[in-house]
Lab assay of single mutants.
Amino acid sequence: TIDDAFRAIERAIQAENEGRYREALKHFLDGGEMIVTAAEKEASQKVRNLLLHKGKEVLEWAEHLAEWILE
């Protein structure tokens, strides 16, 4: 659900702030994927587009974090 997705993102932010970057990455990926999944089930085109945009933002952040971890 969207609530689960945002809880995962909150955990990711907390982990990132505490320097637990790999854990943060996992939570960002989980949250982003949950948002995209919820968007695919959404009946309203406007809400679907907003959710897809937010999911994409979260997944892009996860990608940047992963690249930073690997440096």
Rank of each mutant, 00 (worst) to 15 (best):
H27V: 03
E23L: 02
K26D: 03
I9G: 00
E63L: 10
A39F: 10
R48N: 04
A39Q: 04
G19L: 05
I2V: 09
V47P: 01
Y21T: 01
H27A: 08
A12F: 08
R7K: 13
S44C: 13
R11P: 00
D4Y: 07
D3A: 14
E71C: 12
F6D: 03
Y21V: 12
A43Q: 11
E33S: 13
M34K: 08
L70K: 13
E63F: 12
K26I: 09
S44G: 08
F6Q: 04
S44A: 06
L65P: 00
L59C: 09
L25I: 12
A39C: 11
H27G: 14
A43L: 13
E10C: 14
E57H: 10
E57P: 03
A43M: 13
L50N: 10
F6V: 06
K46F: 13
E18C: 11
K56S: 05
Q45Y: 08
R22P: 03
E67R: 14
D4V: 08
E40P: 02
Y21R: 01
A38T: 06
W68R: 07
T1G: 10
E60F: 05
L50I: 15
E10G: 04
R20A: 03
Q45K: 11
A12I: 03
L51I: 03
L25D: 02
G32D: 01
V36G: 04
E16A: 15
E10P: 00
V47H: 04
N17K: 14
E10D: 10
D30W: 11
E60V: 08
R20E: 05
S44V: 14
G32W: 14
I9M: 02
A15K: 03
L25Q: 02
E10Y: 10
R48Y: 09
K54E: 02
E18K: 05
N49G: 06
A12E: 00
R20M: 06
K46W: 13
E63V: 12
G32A: 15
A24D: 01
L50A: 11
T37Y: 08
Y21C: 12
E42C: 13
K54H: 06
A66T: 05
E33C: 14
A39M: 07
E67N: 13
K46L: 14
I13G: 02
N17T: 09
V47D: 06
K54Q: 06
R11W: 09
L59P: 00
I13R: 05
V58E: 12
A62D: 00
Q45P: 14
A5I: 10
V58H: 00
H64F: 07
L52C: 14
M34N: 02
W61A: 05
V58M: 08
V47Q: 06
S44K: 06
L50E: 12
K54M: 15
A24L: 03
R48P: 02
H64G: 05
K26R: 10
N49W: 08
E57A: 10
I13K: 06
V36M: 14
D30A: 13
A39P: 01
A62G: 02
A62Q: 05
E16Q: 15
W61M: 07
E67G: 08
A43V: 12
E71I: 10
H64L: 14
S44W: 07
K56P: 02
L50Q: 13
D3F: 14
W61N: 03
I9S: 02
E16G: 11
G32P: 02
R7E: 08
K54A: 12
A12Q: 01
E10I: 10
E18N: 09
E71N: 10
W68Q: 05
E10H: 07
T37R: 15
Y21M: 04
A5R: 01
V58N: 00
L51W: 07
A12T: 00
K54R: 07
E40T: 12
R11I: 09
A12P: 03
M34E: 02
K46Q: 13
N49Q: 11
L65W: 04
G32Q: 06
A66V: 07
E18F: 05
A15L: 15
L29N: 03
V47G: 02
F28D: 00
I35D: 01
I69D: 02
E57I: 13
A62W: 04
L59M: 06
Q45N: 08
Y21W: 04
L59Q: 07
A15Q: 02
L29K: 09
A62R: 02
K46Y: 13
A24M: 03
E57W: 11
K26P: 02
V36S: 05
Y21L: 07
N49Y: 06
I2M: 06
I69A: 01
K46E: 14
E40M: 15
L65I: 11
L29G: 01
L51F: 04
A15W: 04
H53N: 13
E16T: 15
A66K: 12
T37C: 11
G32K: 05
A43W: 07
E23D: 11
K26H: 06
G31P: 02
A38M: 12
A12S: 02
D4T: 06
G19W: 03
E67Y: 10
L52R: 04
R20H: 08
K56T: 04
E10F: 12
Q14G: 02
E40F: 14
I2F: 05
H27T: 02
A66W: 10
R11E: 08
